[in-house]
């Protein structure tokens, strides 16, 4: 049947499903909250909750051990983390001199694939979920980081860029009996 053929491309479609669901969520949040900042914050919080669980999934399916430095962390995030869950490999660049801050450049952003921002949402960072995911996931491996989008194609910038900054190691956060 000709009908069947187009559904075989399962992986791609399940990505679209994710994109569409995320879109429905954002538009619901925009309706629910008055300011864009609140929407950003809420998306980030949800991302955090996802990240906290996602890291477990990630460690279970990859054989990644502990990272020795922040450069390695950045590499794992882009080449393994994003690759595994979203099928993209954002570019890691713009290291600062101290080596504790870098940028992720997204050439394609699966979250924002079919998206156009309407007028009047100049403070909305559409993909804020990802910020939370990174923070949450790294916190579970004892790393406190700060992350934020600084450029977004959706807002008319030339590229989508997320800045990630290492804050500190969470020494005491290992539960008793672990390690």
């Amino acid at each position: 049947m000709s009908k069947q053929a187009s559904f075989r491309d399962n992986k791609k479609v399940s990505g679209e499903l994710f994109t569409l669901t995320y879109g429905a969520l954002v538009s619901q949040l925009v309706k629910d909250y008055e300011s864009d900042e609140d929407v950003n914050r809420q998306l980030e919080r949800m991302g955090y909750n996802i990240g906290v669980r996602l890291i477990e999934d990630f460690l279970a399916r990859s054989n990644t051990g502990r990272c020795n430095d922040f450069r390695e962390t950045a590499d794992v995030i882009s080449k393994q983390g994003f690759k595994t869950f979203l099928g993209i490999t954002p570019q890691v660049t713009n290291w600062n001199a101290a080596g504790d801050e870098f940028s992720l450049i997204f050439e394609s952003n699966p979250l924002a694939e079919f998206v156009e921002l309407p007028e009047g949402h100049s403070n909305l960072w559409y993909s804020s979920l990802l910020v939370g995911v990174i923070k949450g996931a790294l916190e579970m491996v004892q790393m406190e980081v700060d992350a934020a989008f600084v450029q977004d194609v959706l807002r008319g910038d030339t590229q989508t860029e997320m800045r990630v900054r290492f804050i500190k190691k969470l020494e005491d956060a290992v539960p008793v009996g672990e390690e």
Partner: peptide
């Protein structure tokens, strides 16, 4: 090795419900 938006989708869905 394949991209797996499925996991993200499931987690997102649970998060949406919770929210």
């Amino acid at each position: 090795t394949m991209a797996d938006a499925e996991t993200m989708f499931d987690l997102l869905q649970m998060e949406i419900v919770k929210f």
